[in-house]
Design a protein around this nucleic acid. Sequence first.
DNA 1: TGAAATTTCTACATTATGTAGAAGTCTAAG
DNA 2: CTTAGACTTCTACATAATGTAGAAATTTCA
Lengths: 126, 126
Amino acid sequence: MATLGDLERAVMDLLWEHPEAITANALRDLLSQRPSGDGDGQESRPLAVTTVLTVLSRLEKKGLVERERSSRPHRYRAVTSRADHTAELMLEVLGSAPDREAVLARFIGTVSEGEAATLRKLLGRD
Amino acid sequence: MATLGDLERAVMDLLWEHPEAITANALRDLLSQRPSGDGDGQESRPLAVTTVLTVLSRLEKKGLVERERSSRPHRYRAVTSRADHTAELMLEVLGSAPDREAVLARFIGTVSEGEAATLRKLLGRD
DNA sequence: TGAAATTTCTACATTATGTAGAAGTCTAAG
DNA sequence: CTTAGACTTCTACATAATGTAGAAATTTCA
C-alpha cells in the first residue's frame, strides 16, 4: 500500500511544500513548471486538469490527501507531513522484518556522521 | 524498484531462511506448506513449478536472487541477507527525503526502548 | 536413444498508475 | 430564474508489474 507512482509523488511533493490547501488547477500549473524528473530538457505537456483530479481522488482514497468540499473549487492538502509519511514508510518496511535489530544495525552503519550525532541527541544517553 | 509482490515476497522469505541454495521444486514444496498469509484456513493450491521458476527469474533480473547454473536442477539463493535488503529499502525511502533529520526524529520516536538501547550502543558515545 | 526432468517461451488475468474525454452538477452573471 | 462556463465525477484506455501456468525446447540418465 506504500508506493506511489511518479505523478502521485509529484503531486504529494507539491502538497507537502504548500502549507495551505490548494486547488487542482493551481496544482496543474505548478506541475507544468517543474522539470519532469529526467534530465531531458523537454518542457513537456501541461496535464489536463481531470488528470490531476483523478490523481487527487486516488490519493484521497489512500488517505494521503484531504479535500475541502466546502469551498467551491475544492481545495486539497496533505494529511500528514512528508517527514511523518516517510517515517511511517520506513517503519512499515522495518516492521515486516523478524530481525529488526539486525536491520537497524545495517541501517545505522550507513547514515552520515552528522545524522548519527542527531540520532544520539534524539536517543538521549540514559 | 523496491516493492515485491506477495509470491515474490514469500519466495524471498524462504530463500532468506535457507543458508544453502535450493531448487525450484524444493521451494514449491515449502511454499505449499506455509499458510498463505490470510487467516483463511484454506489449504490452497500447490503452485506449478513453472510459476516458481518464473518468479525466480524475475527476482534474478531484479538482482535479489542468484542461481547456480552449474548444478543441474539449478539452485537458487538470495544475494543479500534479509537484514541488508530491509536496511537498503529503508535507506531508499529515507534517501528521497529532503528533510532527513526530521524523518529520523519521527522514526526514532517510534522504536521500542530495547531497540533504542541497541541504537545507542551502535552509535557509540563519541 | 528416448522418456522423464528441467528450463525457457509465451500467454493470459488482474491490478496500479498515467492520462484524459464525456457527461453531470454547480455557480454566478444577467 | 435561466443558462453558459467552471468544476467534478464517470468512464475508458494504455502500459507495466505480478500471479499463474501451458507449450516448447533442452538436458540428463537409464
